[in-house]
Design a protein around this nucleic acid. Structure first.
Lengths: 339, 339
DNA sequence: CACAATAATGTAAACGGTTGCACTAGTTTG
DNA sequence: CAAACTAGTGCAACCGTTTACATTATTGTG
């Protein structure tokens, strides 16, 4: 049995209340007793029992992150790891732990309700891909703090979210290509049902406008996100008489399709075709040529989401916050013509 | 404030002790009262407070998984996600939650000690890459249950671990290639300081022996795990006069190097060179040709690790268990000669 | 120097469960 | 039919904190 507050109290010749005040560094305490108690605590290597504190405070000890094994898209990727680290880093500073709420298919509610009912968490972070009205209303009804990772707009009710600044990413991709001498820039992206694709497209358009470059409608290709469709799209583009000399891909998977098409058509990247890809996965460095990518600070995304959540926990009536995280161009081979 | 055991007791006209017995379905209870109490619990939608239970039972509510952001290797990959799901699935069945213990660089002890001291976890799962003597001794000294993910052998003290059956994987890779008409099979793998590489090598050797095929020492190449070294190694192999017609890669990254070499030398995969890769990452389906891979059931690995840990928690004196998970060949293009 | 104001500490009741022990009522047993 | 069990239930202490309120010690004021 570990040493408890009582034993510290006895050893220090004070009451447990005083020890508790030391733990919570309450201001109304003489420096003398504080020091004495602290010394004893150290000597007996006392650590307060979190369960008892939680019970007494009526506060859960954790913050949860919802994940879903049947969601192979956005989060099912190497970055996920860093998001977790970001969240954990932020909540740890507050003495909280990160717990994983692993949902299976449709059963998101089940685990979330369990965690709420059992008082296992103070708040929850939800990837936008898993945020639907049903779940969010459940949380709202219970006035339970939550933050969405990924831009999220649902009706009129404001929601706190943190996202990558995809629009900025789109602009940077275009600007980078222009700077490197490409002036006929296409965009191949995933489905426009995803907000981040819309944002990337928007950034693309803006940058073209800003640089006073014409926008060819058929240079903007929406795909289902598969390598195959990207392949076909790129092939079609290369065969058209109005052929682009650079392309921006919505993610690394699409880039694979583009590279395959280029190879088949004997179009050299980066000589004849510049390529910039979103999603700076580790594998962007592995392919030939390595992919210039729009880098995304996922760790920071996790940290900010957590901090946003903590703010909501501190003050449930605080206004919902929306935050965007800056992107950056990670320059590699696919967009630099060898001189 | 949520409904507590007292209110249930009052509503049911019994004592809190009885309600508690219902919750823990103690055997000494008449069916009649049990039903009555259960009914009331349902009606008032009562859920026991986990913190109070934990405090009373002297049991933490969680099991932890240690991760490290500065560990880009084995776990920093898409599979990690599934390991977590596996662990969570198993511990959830026991009413426990999975918490993430995120360590930064050298400071593994810090977070682990914190979680132990604060009674936040009942046991911990540690990737073998993070398991060192210092950490393990800390855990052992406190008689704290832990399980390692990945084969782990340290001195004489037995440790519970769960790993992929890498040896089997090596054998399967060879057998598959032989079956498909390749008979000059090389192996390019990562550093032999990693046990799993040794195991894969061992499986390779065994399979060759079983099929009575000669083993060429220079067909076994150890690399540092980088794409570049795999590239050079493959190039050298292809240029040698004793050139293999198939190769097994220790992971997907090495495969990239191999594919680059093959392409440069105008050696066609799978026609002139069969390729089987370990690590069935999603991207194995993306490259051209798609990679025949040794598939690994990572979800199961998580589940088994968790179950092993739970067994240790139930009975700290139980013997340490070591478990291997079967691999399987996922056949794709890179190892099947088109007829 | 008496008295009020203030600062420092203690007392004891929560928080929401669990459980050893005592008790009651019904069932065996000799 | 009394004694000995047994099954079912309640009482109350306990798990390790926090905190409102009461109490005591210290300081400042006229």
């Amino acid at each position: 049995m570990a040493v408890s507050i009582k034993e510290i109290a006895k050893a220090a010749g004070v009451s447990t209340a005083t020890v508790s005040r030391v733990i919570n560094n309450s201001p109304k305490l003489s420096q003398k007793t504080r020091d004495k108690v602290l010394k004893i605590m150290k000597e007996m290597n006392y650590v307060p029992n979190s369960l008892a504190r939680g019970l007494s405070n009526q506060k859960a000890l954790n913050v949860a992150l919802l994940i879903n094994i049947e969601e192979p898209s956005s989060f099912h990727n190497p970055f996920f790891y860093e998001v977790m680290h970001g969240i954990e880093t932020a909540v740890y500073k507050r003495g909280l732990s990160l717990i994983i709420a692993s949902s299976r298919g449709e059963d998101k509610q089940e685990i979330v309700e369990w965690l709420m009912n059992e008082k296992r968490m103070q708040g929850i972070i939800i990837p936008s891909s898993l945020a639907d009205g049903k779940l969010l209303n459940l949380l709202r009804k219970r006035k339970f703090p939550f933050v969405v990772i990924g831009k999220f707009e649902e009706g009129i009710k404001p929601v706190s979210w943190v996202d990558i600044n995809n629009q900025q990413g789109g602009e940077q991709a275009v600007a980078h290509l222009i700077q490197n001498g490409y002036e006929r820039i296409a965009l191949i992206c995933g489905g426009m049902d995803k907000v981040f694709n819309l944002d990337r497209l928007e950034g693309y358009k803006r940058a073209l406008a800003r640089h006073q470059m014409p926008m060819e409608p058929n240079w903007i290709v929406e795909t289902d996100g598969s390598k195959n469709q990207a392949y076909s799209a790129m092939k079609a583009l290369l065969q058209s008489d109005n052929c682009p000399n650079a392309v921006i891909c919505g993610d690394n998977i699409l880039s694979f399709g583009v590279m395959k098409a280029a190879q088949e058509m004997e179009v050299s990247i980066p000589k004849d075709l510049g390529l910039v890809s979103f999603d700076n996965y580790p594998l962007a460095t592995l392919v030939e040529p390595s992919l210039t990518s729009i880098h995304i600070d996922v760790f920071q995304m996790g940290e900010m989401a957590a901090n946003s959540l903590l703010a909501l926990i501190d003050n449930p009536d605080a206004s919902q916050q929306q935050m965007l995280i800056s992107t950056a161009v990670e320059v590699r081979e696919s967009s630099i013509r060898r001189t």
